[in-house]
Design a protein around this nucleic acid. Structure first.
Lengths: 212, 212
DNA sequence: ACCTGAACACCGTTCAAGT
DNA sequence: ACCTGAACACCGTTCAAGT
């Protein structure tokens, strides 16, 4: 029978989940699909495209319907959904991080849009809303890559002691950073008499460089 | 003459800077040092240890003396110094990101400590200060990996149009995210009448899970 | 102590040729 | 249109043996 794009992605997702990202090679994938490595290159231009498709598979449940929520809750919900999706697969965070860097995941683009829309509702103009959205994603990916690698060290037996501060209560730890970011966004759009916050001035979009 | 650890790191840093991370292989490194690949394994346990040493070399100038500055400026200064060090070498951000994930850079640990100390001065207790420090590093690494890959796409000729918003004014864009984070930190330690901010309660360190 | 030689067990990608 | 066979040009790591 014929090999389809989706079969390849499904098998790749299985290998990832069972054996980790180091075992997700084109040759092994081909072997487990009972085809020749070259066959995969009929369906995918290169390995990165394949990984992008796997990332999208992992991120499917991470695009929640949040249209009705106030902006801050929308951001928290999306962040939590993203983290959960990443944790659901072995090395999921690492795979999606790599894919994010190469810009080949459609689902991640969608998540970025949702976050930018929330930031926009918070009062940021378009450019800064997109920046805030990326900042959230940097945090979720960074945190979760860390968390997942520690989980694996831990499961594999040896956790370096004294580091228990870094593994306990991961949900609370994750929420702390999310709160930091959401608070930062609020601060820039809440004028209060004693904190010196000012309305959003935006980043000068490309003409001058205001930073020292 | 004898091969020393520092010679290996120096040559590795040169290959990285001239040809990028894809060309930084143990075999090529050995070839350019006129030794056998096996020789490298006398000086380094594995490739990750070597990459950690290269990361430390790159990060040397990114550990600024900031003891005298107020906490917010210390954070901004460290963040800017880190970004600058990453940008100074081809694929520097990617290399340090990979090394950060594997926890093998001493310099990055030092930077994390400096940031945590600043967060501590901002009013966070130890656990949360360490979390805030990591959040800053996630941001700087994420942002700079992005920035550097776009710089390379751009230099290599084809920049996908309509994306100019993402490449112009990088200094201002970087500062925006830093401000977001610093503002978030301030918000949690500034009691003002209309923003509902409360003093730092900390993450319950490992006993209960306060998050839904 | 420090390095070579040689092997082990792999990679991603391409492409003429087959069906 | 879809895939095989076979090659190209590599990898990281180990380890007996040499000096």
């Amino acid at each position: 029978m014929q090999l389809h794009r989706s079969d390849v992605v499904t098998k790749a997702a299985h290998i990832l989940d069972e054996f980790g990202i180091a075992d997700l090679t084109m040759r092994r994938l081909a072997r487990e699909l009972s085809v020749t490595p070259g066959a995969l290159y009929w369906h995918f231009a290169d390995k990165q495209e394949l990984l992008g498709a796997v990332a999208d598979r992992i991120l499917e449940p991470a695009v929640p319907d949040v249209a009705a929520l106030p902006w801050a809750q929308r951001i928290s919900t999306i962040g939590a959904a993203l983290r959960e999706a990443l944790l659901s697969s072995t090395d999921g965070a690492e795979l999606v991080s790599a894919t994010f860097a190469s810009g080949r995941s459609a689902a991640l683009a969608r998540i970025l849009d949702l976050l930018a829309a929330a930031a926009s509702d918070a009062g940021f103009e378009t450019t800064n809303a997109a920046l805030a959205a990326r900042t959230i994603v940097y945090y979720v990916l960074g945190f979760t890559v860390d968390e997942q690698s520690r989980l694996q060290w831990d499961a594999a037996g040896a956790l370096p002691d004294g580091q228990s501060v870094l593994t306990s209560n991961p949900n609370g730890r994750f929420a702390f950073g999310m709160r930091l970011l959401v608070d930062g966004m609020s601060a820039q759009h809440t004028v209060s008499p004693d904190d010196g916050a000012s309305p959003d001035e935006g980043v000068d979009t490309g003409v001058t460089v205001p930073t020292a």
